[in-house]
């Protein structure tokens, strides 16, 4: 017994040490550097200061933070609004078509991230076919700029994160018992009512996962706004990179990063707690409904 414990300790230690040194410690340094001053040649000064944190009240930040939150929420909502009907359709399709469609959704997901953004730069290019078609249809002026604004950022974000939203929702929808929907409709519910009151609660777990896996990278988005966004569509990620690579002000970059870290982890914790509560409620309900079965499963 004791030997097994020692063996397990030895197996677990290398990764533990690695993650403490290269993950936990860096995050700690990030929070600490927010309270350090910057020195003249872009290094870290001596002593401690609250100035950097105070500078976050600089009037340009609230609008950037607001835009980051708003863009993140909007792209997440659009992804989920598309992913739910897509997953429904995928789950009800004949297996042959389902596998083909699923593969077509997965391929962009595995394609290099930069290639996907590049494709959008070509697509929205001022001399591109899409722009030409819009002008011909009278939907855009020849001077309309499709790239380098917040709409381009939003489109590319939805494009990038849509597969992230489809996969977890589809994984749950695939196991959903569709005869429940037929039953609801036989009892007089409309298609939409049955969808809303039977299907959506049935796939709620998948929607939660999709919400997390889309919203979190969207809040930290840096590459997309820096490549297809403009000066009026900067997000928090752009500002962090600017502070590192342009101004070489590491304490300031740390303060912004710490803020982003809190913005990501606080809702995540809230989400986890809510989920635990819901699961606990569901399992007590399940036990009430089938006490004998529940007892059999538990050893």
């Amino acid at each position: 017994m004791k030997r097994a414990k020692l063996a397990n300790f030895l197996i677990g230690t290398p990764t533990f040490v690695w993650l403490v040194v290269f993950y936990a410690l860096p995050v700690l340094i990030m929070f600490l550097l927010a309270f350090k001053p910057v020195d003249a040649n872009g290094g870290i000064g001596d002593g401690w200061t609250l100035r950097t944190v105070m500078e976050l009240r600089n009037p340009s930040y609230p609008s950037i933070i607001w835009r980051t939150a708003w863009q993140g929420a909007l792209s997440t909502a659009l992804c989920i609004m598309m992913a739910v009907p897509i997953s429904y359709q995928l789950a009800r399709m004949a297996p042959r078509w389902r596998n083909l469609s699923l593969m077509l959704i997965i391929v962009p997901f595995w394609t290099n991230f930069l290639i996907r953004i590049y494709a959008w730069k070509v697509f929205l290019h001022p001399h591109g076919a899409f722009k030409t078609a819009l002008v011909w249809l009278g939907l855009a002026e020849p001077s309309t700029q499709l790239l380098y604004n917040e709409w381009a950022v939003l489109a590319v974000m939805v494009y990038t994160y849509l597969p992230y939203a489809v996969l977890p929702i589809y994984a749950v929808a695939e196991k959903f018992d569709f005869s429940l929907l037929d039953a609801a409709k036989d009892l007089g519910a409309s298609s939409f009512y049955a969808f809303r009151r039977v299907f959506l609660p049935g796939i709620a777990n998948g929607i939660w996962t999709a919400l997390m896996v889309v919203l979190i990278p969207a809040l930290g988005a840096y590459l997309i706004p820096s490549l297809v966004g403009g000066p009026t569509s900067e997000l928090l990620g752009d500002k962090i990179a600017q502070r590192v690579f342009v101004d070489r002000n590491l304490p300031h970059a740390s303060a912004l990063s710490a803020l982003l870290m809190l913005a990501v982890f606080l809702p995540l914790l809230a989400g986890l707690v809510l989920r635990r509560l819901r699961e606990a409620r569901q399992s007590t309900e399940a036990e009430r409904q089938a006490p004998a079965a529940a007892k059999e499963v538990r050893p």
């Binding site: 993950y23 860096p26 990030m30 997390m212 990620g237 970059a253 990063s257 982003l260 990501v264």
Partner: peptide, 10 residues
């Protein structure tokens, strides 16, 4: 779940 920019900068 940490955004990659935060892993990078830290």
């Amino acid at each position: 779940v940490v955004p990659d920019i935060l892993l990078g900068i830290s």
